[in-house]
Write a protein that binds this DNA or RNA. Structure first.
Lengths: 124, 124
DNA sequence: CTGTATCCCGTAAGATACTG
DNA sequence: CAGTATCTTACGGGATACAG
C-alpha cells in the first residue's frame, strides 16, 4: 500500500493537492492539532496559538464547512462556544501526527547539524 | 507515542507549525510527492503538475535550502538538470503518504456523502 | 465571550517574454 | 532545456475597533 517504485500511484500528487486545499493556510492544522486532544473554546484557541479573532473565526468556519470540526454553543452566562474535532477531523490524526513528529525531527536533524558543519555558525 | 489524552504533548502544535513553515505553499509537498517516486527533470515537473517555471524554480530552491531535494546537473547536450529527493526529504514520506491517503478518503467521505444528503446537489 | 467590520500590507502565485 | 526578469493580481493574514 505504500507506492511501489515504478507502479507509482496514478496521481498520488493529485490526492496530495486535494488535501492541501482543505488544510491550506498557516492555521488549520495547528487548530486541529489542538482539537484532537480536547475541545477548546474560541478564546482559548485564540490565546493558545496567538491568532487574531478575525483569522481564527475564518479558519474555524472553513474547518466546519469541511466537516472537520463541530461547533457547539453553550447556553452559559456570557455565551461560550466549544469547538471540537469531528470524526472526519480525527481521520486527519495520522497527518497531524506525522507532521508534528517530523517537526521535531527536522529541528534536530537540521538545526543540530548546522552547529557542526556550517562555517558561518562558528566565526566567533 | 501517540499523544495520550490529557498528558498532551507540551506544544505539539508548535512542531506542526515548524513543519508547516518548511512545506508552506501549494507546491512543495506536491513536488516532493513526485520526487519520492523517482527523480525528475525540471521540465518534467513543470508539465506534470502544471506550474510555471518561475514558481517551480523558486519552490525547488526552497526545497534545496531545506535539504529536502538534491539538484544534479547532467552534462548532456542541451544541459538537463535532475532533481531528486534527499534522505531528509524521504523522512517526509510518512507525511506525504498520510496526506495522499487522506486525499482519497476525503474525496469519498465528503464528495460521496454530498450526493445523498446535500439538497443543493439534487435540484435538477 | 464570541464574533464581525474595516483597513492595510506583504507576498504567494500566475502570465509572459527573454537569456544562457 | 533550465531558468531568470518583469509585471500584475489576488489573497492570506495581522491590527484594531466595535457589536451582540
Amino acid at each position: 500500500m505504500h507506492s511501489c517504485p515504478g507502479s507509482a500511484s496514478k496521481s498520488q500528487h493529485q490526492a496530495v493537492r486535494d488535501t492541501l486545499e482543505v488544510i491550506s493556510g498557516k492555521w488549520k492544522l495547528v487548530i486541529l492539532a489542538l482539537l484532537l486532544n480536547r475541545p477548546y473554546r474560541f478564546k482559548e484557541l485564540s490565546r493558545e496559538i496567538g491568532i487574531s479573532p478575525r483569522i481564527l473565526s475564518k479558519e474555524l468556519q472553513e474547518l466546519e464547512q469541511h466537516q472537520l470540526v463541530t461547533r457547539r454553543v453553550c447556553e452559559t452566562r456570557p455565551i461560550t462556544v466549544e469547538y471540537a474535532s469531528s470524526d472526519h477531523g480525527r481521520s486527519l490524526l495520522s497527518v497531524v501526527q506525522a507532521m508534528s513528529d517530523w517537526g521535531y525531527l527536522h529541528h534536530e536533524t537540521i538545526v543540530g547539524k548546522k552547529r557542526l558543519d556550517d562555517p558561518s555558525a562558528q566565526i566567533a
